[in-house]
Design a protein around this nucleic acid. Structure first.
Lengths: 240, 240
DNA sequence: TACGGTTGTCTAGATTAATAGACATTTAGG
DNA sequence: CCTAAATGTCTATTAATCTAGACAACCGTA
């Protein structure tokens, strides 16, 4: 059930399991988490340990404990983010949340590393524009991303984005009306300290990192991005 | 750097960070992990805590400590698993590992839940075949999966797989020569106890779960599967 | 061979996590 | 208006994790 002496506190393991059950819809019949005593029996731990787990979930805003009534589930949705040849961030999520925002955290001109140069078809050391973005839906952080563009071809990407708030519109303002997703690599790992604070994740949380290359209609790469999604808030839907 | 009182032991946080650094290639110059004393200073913890972290990485087979010399990195590769319209498990990984195996763990005839019925276009309660598979590459567990097939259309799927060791060949033996990937949903979460033991993961490990539907050339769903990949051993490559 | 740098082992103590039990407080329902 | 069932709070104890320091064992090299 839960394991001991593995470097993960019991209350955290239990919190993770309950979070998963909630998102699986296991408690949809009642809309409530089972009583603390029942959970303690189920997981074979003391009630206080379960209370620590529930306190952490309440802290995330996922559940709401009321003395005398029980612990109700506050929310359980997972945004679905489609990935296809025509992946567009804001379009994909529209309809699933009311308030979608992409905020420019930082931008800079930097020399291309080997990795970036390979992805964008530049020479290593050539100048490129880096944009750091934070996207949120209804006030919850959904993803943070770092994108690179050729500084020669798209010199004013940062200004455009700051004004328009959209990659697609910024490309259009730079004279590129269309682009397609050339490749997407997907990896999952624990969030680092920066991601924890940006996405307001609880420590130990998981991020899905999508390393994507977008290309113009002629097939030339125009954007290399690494987007880190809060794994418990999204699912990626691949459209082949 | 590392955070305290978050329900994750310091040694585990440190192990996770070092694992990430290794797969990022941060230590490729020397092929060695920095000395324990340096790591202890870097993370602001006692050397013994770092030793616990390294012991756990050594237990995974990721590093190798030698008294007097230091701690060497044993492996760092990540298998690349392509996902496309024509996703085939064994084909996709061939060439990346010598010894690829898919083992049938269990099979059963079960009534379709709502979820399975929706995916396969059956009526809830209709009988379907469930196959539980474990795939490994060079002796390391890569993924475990649960697949569902219509029992009416593919009554002998389990026998075929047991003999042929391949879904594609089992479909062929059932008279279906071709199929395509209709949809893939991707989610990442912590591994459960069953996955930990099947894939021999260290507790707290991450799995990437791909929920996929394969369809015949006429577009009728033939397979619904949930495949859980060990996140630190694979990356998914989306081919749009 | 001697030495600096590294991992291995041991002991002791401090801090954090988990257990155990008792009882208070609140809510819903008969 | 009770009572049952649920969460909230408190104290005490045990178990696990982290810190601290000292020293042994081993490797590579001068």
């Amino acid at each position: 059930m839960v394991e001991r002496q593995i470097g993960v506190a019991l209350w955290r393991q239990i919190a993770d399991r309950i979070r998963l059950s909630i998102s699986n819809g296991d408690f949809d019949a009642t809309g409530m988490v089972p009583p603390e005593t029942a959970l303690a029996a189920q997981f074979g731990v003391n009630r206080h340990t379960v209370r620590s787990a529930l306190a952490s979930l309440a802290d995330e805003g996922l559940v709401n404990a009321v003395q005398g009534r029980g612990t109700t589930i506050a929310r359980k949705e997972r945004l679905s983010f489609p990935i296809s040849k025509r992946t567009r961030f804001s379009q994909g999520l529209s309809g699933q949340a009311r308030d979608l925002k992409a905020r420019l955290l930082d931008h800079a001109s930097v020399p291309a590393t080997r990795e970036i140069a390979d992805a964008l078809g530049l020479k290593p050391g050539e100048t490129c524009i880096r944009l750091d973005l934070l996207s949120s839906a209804d006030g919850r952080g959904v993803s943070c991303s770092t994108s690179y563009f050729s500084a020669e071809r798209f010199p004013r990407m940062a200004e455009h984005f700051a004004r328009l708030g959209s990659i697609t519109k910024s490309f259009a303002a730079s004279g590129l009306d269309d682009y397609v997703r050339a490749s997407t690599d997907i990896v999952a790992r624990h969030a680092d300290a920066n991601e924890l604070s940006l996405l307001k994740l609880s420590p130990g949380a998981i991020v899905i990192e999508a390393q994507a290359i977008n290309a113009d209609p002629q097939g030339r790469p125009v954007q290399y991005s690494r987007t880190r999604f809060a794994a418990d808030r999204v699912k990626l839907t691949i459209e082949t």
